[in-house]
């Protein structure tokens, strides 16, 4: 069963690009929210992660801030 993966990102953030590329390279299906236009999702991100920087990755409720490859791999069981 594929895990539920959400990415909160902005189009201009270099690490967001790398996170999404990493997920694609590993065939992980994810939902991407552009928080530069989606205010509600931006607030949700701030609430979930307790901070204001992107990217934020939510893997089945585990919140990872930044492109932390090791934690993402562990959370996805890669």
């Amino acid at each position: 069963m594929a895990k539920n993966v959400n990415v909160y990102s902005t189009p201009t953030c270099p690490w967001c690009v790398r996170v999404k590329q990493f997920l694609k390279d590993n065939n992980v299906v994810f939902q991407d929210y552009d928080v530069s236009i989606d205010r509600a999702k931006g607030d949700e991100m701030a609430q979930k992660s307790g901070q204001m920087s992107v990217p934020v990755i939510d893997i089945e409720g585990e919140i990872i801030v930044g492109f932390d490859k090791e934690r993402i791999k562990a959370a996805l069981g890669l």
Partner: peptide, 17 residues
């Protein structure tokens, strides 16, 4: 840090729309 303070305007700027 990361709770309003950023060292990368390119990354985090759009959050302050």
């Amino acid at each position: 840090k990361n709770k309003g303070i950023s060292y990368c305007a390119t990354c985090d700027g759009p959050l302050f729309n």
